[in-house]
Design a protein around this nucleic acid. Structure first.
Lengths: 342, 342
DNA sequence: TTGAAAGCGCTAACAG
DNA sequence: CTGTTAGCGCTTTCAA
């Protein structure tokens, strides 16, 4: 089926090292043997076994990527860009989707280590602190370079979004539009910083922080947003604006408001976070804080590849902050003039 | 850094074969040595090298997946489900996104072969027939089991959507709603069958097939749909319904109509294909033909894993057709009563 | 029950 | 320029 270097050598009537030379193109080989070998290679459809090569040069040329949910638009695009970027640098990507389950993460991590990946891009940290520590220890001992997105782990490089500033500007935008009762729906992990940005904006503008307007959820999906809004309404809280920890949450919340007869942005102005592709398509088009995925992906890859060829102890632990940008659309009621009837 | 079996053997004071026995749990080992070895393993944080194992048992426990575009909602979910499914069967997935570029596909395929993946799930065939033949030959000679989604390749198993029936039912739906000027926007590849379904429905119902209402595009993205609709309008074609080869195309087309002041579904009823998650969120909610991604993914994985342990010549080439289902929502104007003003 | 030794397919010195 | 040889880390006979 698949020929080995040995068979090629026999076919070409040379030694296996000569064949090795030809396929690697490093050492010089006489034109004659070169041709002979090439013919044999073609005839036998020989392709060097990457696994065997790995045994020798200790490089799998493989990077492990961990994301919370591949089917989420945000992570799908992130994964695609990372995969492309790595491919252009000669690497293959192993992508695993954890569903934010701690056990899965550990399992994937172990698998990556056993497979001797050259590096790991870690975009999903479990929320429970204890578990996290375990993973970090495993990772450290493995000696495999790691870069993370968002939660910084000491000793590893990371890329972080400017969540505090991003959400600050989102809420500031709502305040400047005249809103004073601004609700917040968000979750754990990075969303905590987004909540801080929300609080900071309110405080800086002298708006009272109303704890009953803050709804914390566990997930970050459409239905989580939907449920959160229902809860908020049931609690009897009144608000004329809403900031959500991500776009999907915002979609769900807006849907729930619609169902309840609340108009967006006329009754409640909404701002999301991420600027996924659908944000533009959504109706009303979502005002949101853009996180430039391609930039983030490139930084992650660059940081990781830099670390790959270095000894574990001399790998820099850099931290790169990615700036965010407020994208104003219809859902905050600022992009377009309010209807005449209003 | 990472300990080898040799070091564990030394640490435990036994031979490497004994260590091998312990970590594989196959042969019996005396309780004493068992404990000694386990201690050594724990102490050195030993994890067997998957690469070295692969050299021996000839199984990488890795499956290569090729999709056209990972950032596309449809493929993202498909990839996630496939990855999960394979993981539960002990396999790791290598995911590559080709952007439908022939060169990339070839490159990925070659990489998969060199890495000795145990199987390939091929969800993206380039459109140019000549190039396709090359890939097929490469694949055949490699002896690696392959399953494809949609385009059937002789000798390999495949899973196909029931495109002809699916699009037939979509167009039938529009006809039953009273439409007679039904436009079609679609592309190459599987969309050809969807076009046939469109034609068939028109013919069966005695509606004249108006070639000027058929707009073929090359891609399958939002902007392709947008452009297609503009072209259709510029050509002066008049239609009161539109069937699109996929949901994204439909989104783009609807957006273009909106911009031109055409109301959906009042002026033009629209039906898409796939039923991606956004179809529900879109406004108007999209009537579309559902392709059950989880079912498709499971079939693909099952077929592939069945083939993995068989000799190339006795692998069955099965073909599984996945039924589709028309999901009626607002965009076709049937789900909800038309507004009173109409 | 355990150890020694022979590879898996390839690369990399080291000789010729 | 080319061939020989020694492994990479592990599993697997085959003896002991």
């Amino acid at each position: 089926m698949k020929a080995t270097i040995k068979e090629v050598a026999k076919e070409a009537g040379v030694s296996i090292s000569t064949v090795s030379r030809v396929i690697n193109g490093r050492d010089r080989v006489s034109k004659q043997t070169l041709r002979k070998v090439q013919q044999a290679v073609d005839k036998l459809q020989f392709r060097p076994d990457h696994v065997a090569r790995t045994m020798i040069n200790k490089k799998t040329k493989t990077i492990g990527l961990i994301v919370p949910q591949l089917s989420n638009e945000y992570w799908a695009l992130m994964s695609e860009v990372i995969q492309n970027e790595l491919w252009s640098m000669g690497y293959t990507t192993l992508i695993c989707s954890t569903d934010s389950e701690v056990d899965k993460e550990s399992a994937y991590l172990k698998m990556y280590i056993e497979r001797r990946v050259d590096g790991i891009i870690y975009c999903s940290f479990p929320y429970t602190q204890g578990a996290t520590q375990d993973q970090v220890d495993i990772l450290r001992q493995s000696g495999i370079p790691v870069v993370t997105l968002d939660p910084a782990i000491s000793g590893f490089s990371c890329v972080v979004g400017d969540h505090l500033f991003g959400s600050f500007s989102a809420v500031e935008h709502l305040i400047q539009l005249g809103h004073r009762s601004i609700a917040y729906i968000g979750g754990p992990a990075v969303s905590i910083e987004r909540e801080f940005g929300y609080r900071k904006a309110l405080m800086m503008y002298g708006v009272n922080v109303e704890e009953s307007l803050i709804c914390l959820v566990n997930g970050q999906s459409f239905s989580d947003g939907h449920n959160a809004l229902m809860k908020l309404r049931e609690s009897g809280a009144a608000f004329d604006a809403l900031f959500c920890g991500n776009d999907l949450l915002a979609f769900g919340a807006i849907k729930a408001m619609e169902e309840a007869g609340v108009r967006v942005p006329e009754d409640v102005a909404v701002v999301g976070y991420d600027d996924i592709f659908s944000a533009r398509l959504f109706k009303p088009a979502l005002t949101t804080v853009r996180q430039p995925i391609p930039d983030i992906a490139k930084e992650l890859v660059t940081l990781l590849i830099q670390a790959v060829d270095l000894d574990p102890d001399q790998r820099p632990a850099r931290k790169i902050v990615i700036p965010t940008e407020l994208v104003v659309r219809e859902s905050s009621g600022a992009a377009q003039p309010v209807a005449a009837s209003d």
